[in-house]
Amino acid sequence: MLAYIVRRVWQMVPTLFGVMLLLFVLFNWVGGDPSYILAGKNLSAEALAGIRQQLGLDLPLPQQFLIFVRQVLTLDFGTSWSTQQPVSALLHSRIGPSLLLTGSILLLGTVLAIGIAALVAYLRGSVTDRLVTLIATCAMSVSALVYIIAGQYWLAFKGGWFPIMGWSDSTLDNLLHYLPLPLLLGVIVGLAPDIRFYRSCFVEELGHDYVRTARAKGLSEPVIMLKHVLRNAMIPVVTSLMMSLPYLMMGAMLLETFFGIPGMGKEVVMAVERSDFPVIKAITIYIALATMLFNLLTDIVYKLIDPRVQLH
């Protein structure tokens, strides 16, 4: 196991280098020139050249890439080009609200989706199963934006059950007042596709011979579902969950924008709009690192769930 982990970590190096190269090429190709934003109304050639020099954009591209490599090695991405704030401080202030929102959505959404999926899989072919499948299919065809706009209008404005938007420095205040509505809407948006996916995992497992054997042995249906089927169905579920974990850092751009949550989603959009390369670099590299680490973790969890899995 240790040798496997060391080998996988070692393989991350060329992958990360590839990510950096791709990001660097993309930014220089289509990322836009930030000097035109920073110059304001003063678009003289001298002003633009001065800004490019200050940002290091006048350096040869290999030299700029080496600076990028150094930043990744030290995880110090300098300061934002647009606000001049340290990138680390910006991301530090943004990551908390994002994780609170997306983490809550993932947790609640997963519990609900697995529960409902297991139930309808157990009742497969029944009216309940068909109804849930039909509702889930319809719900999936509606844009997330519609849920957010309608939810904010009806539940917060018309119903008055939630604040329209806002965020506080107090986690408790956020949990009690500002988080519930975006959490609810985030869960609703993700619930339908999750139910369908998890249902198919459970249904597939329910058709296996070991389930018939368990029934023949006289095991109760709850025991079959919870002890046998659930465990075996967890492999694709865990894969899906683990793959989504790195993106928790990215936040939920629409929810953050509509509900005034100062998270990473808003920061990503701002950075792209302003061609703020230090912020884009930092977020991309952190997401890439997290993705690779969670991939590794997923493999290790496979082994824990199913001892038959061999890690090579």
Partner: peptide, 18 residues
């Protein structure tokens, strides 16, 4: 001062006296 870029939350926040 809040930064509100979307029109709906801006408008509803005003109507709601936020």
């Amino acid at each position: 001062i809040s930064v509100i870029e979307e029109e709906q939350p801006l408008w509803l926040s005003f109507l709601n006296r936020q």
